[in-house]
Design a protein around this nucleic acid. Structure first.
Lengths: 157, 157
DNA sequence: AAGCTATACTTGACACGTCAACCATTGATC
DNA sequence: GATCAATGGTTGACGTGTCAAGTATAGCTT
């Protein structure tokens, strides 16, 4: 009877139903772990992972800005969360919002200069965190992991 | 210039800093996706993914039950969340709690008969969800994914 | 121009994760 | 046996994900 790594990790004697189950559980536990690792890097600057993601999306959008829901669709969330997330970013002056004159239903969002400065200061520590989190994998392993994950997402949409 | 799958997915023109960054982002997006898939299966029974995990842990513990924080440590969370999570499970009568007579600081938790029945009824739909989520991967792919994830967790602890 | 539907949010409610502060009980120390 | 630190849990506060319901604006239909 050979016990898997994960099984021992969660002190569960019941065997996995299938490879698929073991992989899904591993996926969730691994992601929770790395998410917390990144969270710790970011919390030093008073920012959360989701807020960081939004700022990066807005930086990518440049001067033209982005409507609220477009930001939401580039993350994975449903809409309602985005409004409040951006409320907090605006409160910290990392984001500026303005009702769009052409279509008054939309609210356009831009990253501010201080938001850009924040992202700059996080560039290096975050790159380090990425590398450290996967330092045990070879380049080939990382590429393979990327391909496997791409495949999972491609099919479940 | 060849654009990665993920890059197109998030409509971001900036290239990834590294393979590690691309893999991390892929990990988070993929997990969010599958988490929501499972969530939809479970919500039909009025239960969340975390509650489901706790019930499974308690089923594994059997008649001797488990102290509150021990449950927490088998999940990934910090302690405070567990108390309230179990409050909700107790409210739905899927879990029973009792202060431990030998060490009155501890609160032991057991899954109830109706909790067990709930798990039984979820066994099949959850197994199906696992398989469907990874149906595009061969057995070899799944094993490889499991190994890669195990390796990541083993080193970041 | 009035009415209808779709779009783009916004708000309220509830489940979680996480931190900090707190309370009760134990167990070791003096 | 009193004191004190450690252990096990709970509570409050805040950020977030998600659903359902509501509001304002656009744009098409008639």
């Amino acid at each position: 009877m050979n016990e898997s790594v994960l099984q021992r990790e969660i002190r569960q004697n019941r065997p996995f139903r299938s490879l698929a189950q073991e992989a899904m559980l591993g996926l969730m536990r691994t992601t929770d772990l790395v998410r917390r690792t990144f969270g710790r890097v970011l919390e030093r600057q008073g920012i959360t992972l989701q807020q960081y993601n939004v700022l990066r999306i807005l930086r990518g959008a440049g001067d033209s800005g982005l409507p609220t829901l477009e930001i939401g669709s580039r993350m994975i969330e449903e809409s309602p969360g985005i409004t409040r997330l951006i409320d907090r970013l605006e409160a910290k002056a990392w984001v500026r919002r303005e009702r769009c004159p052409h279509d008054r239903r939309q609210v356009l969002c831009w990253i501010t200069a201080s938001g850009l400065a924040l992202l700059d200061s996080l560039e290096e520590p975050m790159a380090e965190a990425d590398d450290r989190a996967l330092s045990m994998l070879s380049a080939e392993d990382k590429s393979h992991l990327i391909r496997l994950l791409d495949a999972i997402r491609a099919d479940s949409r």
